[in-house]
Design a protein around this nucleic acid. Sequence first.
RNA 1: UGGGGCGUAGCCAAGUGGUAAGGCAUCGGGUUUUGAUCCCGUGUAUCGCAGGUUCGAAUCCUGCCGCCCCAGCCA
Length: 558
Amino acid sequence: MTETTRDFIRQIIHDDLLSGKHEQIVTRFPPEPNGYLHVGHVMSICLNFGVGQETNGKTFLRFDDTNPGKEREEYVRAIERDVHWLGFDWGDRLTHASDYFDRLYESAEKLIENGVAYVDDLSADEIRAHRGTLTEPGTNSPYRERSVDENMNMFRRMRAGEFADGTHLLRAKIDMASPNMNLRDPALYRIRHIDHQRTGDKWCIYPMYDFAHTLSDAFEGTTHSLCTLEFEDHRPLYEWFLDQLQPENRPRQIEFSRLNLAYTITSKRQLNNLIEKSVVTGWDDPRMPTIAGMRRRGYSAAALREFVKRGGVTKKDKLIEMGVLENCVREQLGDSAERRMAVLRPLKVVLTNYPEGQVEMMAGHNHPNRPELGTREVPFSRELWIEQDDFLEEAPRKFFRLKPGGEVRLRSGYIIRCDDVIKNDAGEVVELHCSYDPDTRSGTGSSDRKVKGTIHWVSAAHSVPAKVRLYDRLFTIPDPTTADDVMDVLNPESLQTVQAMLEPSLKNLADGEAVQFERLGYFCTDSEEHTSEAPVFNRIVTLRDSWAKLERQAMQQS
RNA sequence: UGGGGCGUAGCCAAGUGGUAAGGCAUCGGGUUUUGAUCCCGUGUAUCGCAGGUUCGAAUCCUGCCGCCCCAGCCA
């Protein structure tokens, strides 16, 4: 039972090491720099780099930059930052597919020499028409039987820039009748008169993914090329390239299922769409399932790694519940985050029997389960803010908070009783008049009196106003991809901004430090917009809330 | 209707012929100056369905059903 169970990929790798097939494992994470990395990538990163670490092997961070025009330097930098932040180090193994353009070109010529690649003059539309369908075989291109010399000549002229985009295409000569569409003479090189972000104007022909990827793996000495399930159909092509070119190193491709998170999307196209339609503010919007977004939201790298670990590595399609991720985030923060008090939706409380002008410094414990974290001073005075939700004029039976005539403990303070409810002309509660019991000061021997509820508070005169953003899931259904248009299932309440009141110690919070606002959740300052003059906090995740659950159940029953 | 892959509890997931681990969620209960944390307890999973082989099948065989992926000069 204590025997560690390995996922099927690690098992294969383990066996290859034991059998002596490989002495050292080499993996790689090969993103295309055409967008930001998201949760799905986290899994691939953790798998590839994780295997590298566990086996004392090597892992490359390789940018798959074979499609100039769609790829940008901004994305390259963002990807590097994200992988690094997640806790992984590629050392000197940072590469680009474009590093191999020369070798790739040579390999293409070799295929032509071997008579297994040809230049096609058909247009894109004609090629599509010749490809056949899923159930019908394709037909050969009339240019398929060109001589090696003619192909070589044409290919060199392609490279020399003699032809316009789309007029010619280098194709592998495999089998137009193959039931596997990827083997119906797939494209190898296309003409694209466009500068490449790294090679400038050196090339006007660019290799396709399958060709560039397979050979890049081989060139770098990859032993296990781990990718997602949709590439399973490409494996025969991957093998074909290796068979034809016989590189010194022969990598093995193994596929696993992607990680899908409920209530989110992970398609770069759709994510980009959210940005363009201003549904979110950018790739790093705290609601985005991107690494940058989750980091800004306040999720830790450790929580993300743990999340991926719990998901496992298999070949089964998965849609993991949000709760699993949130739980990893909470678990990590529960231990580390210090406690503070803040009131999100303030309701004024006046302690009528508390001396006017008096201020007491109460000792707030920084962490209930870690006394070594000490205490901080929290000012207490006659006028306080409490949470609107913590008062109910007509409270249900198990409402352990404030109600007319009722008592609650103010956390780290005194027990108070609600004597009067002040309302405005509209009948809304605007203020509470309460009295405090001087014998119940927190931490003193005479504070033994018990009341059912404890609520948080902030001294009005000492409070620090702050903008606090409350985030929720971006979509209203577990699998937004099943909607006709994801715009139809957006959660209108994915972001609520409130003007909150914070306890004064929060003014000195270090950048990036997460704290728990007691009874509310975990929060951190926003890395982009927060200043000490105008504080902006993000809610990382709420606390578990069994009261909210009870309410929900009560609602459903009535 | 061609090819490839996958089907074990609400969500993940072990298990590879000997009678179904674990995590999360759920539901009880205890502790608690956070309705948090923590602790204890809690699951009739017809192992997609139907046959077959076997003393014995989630595991082997046959047939069926369901879901996902593939017809970019994207990756």
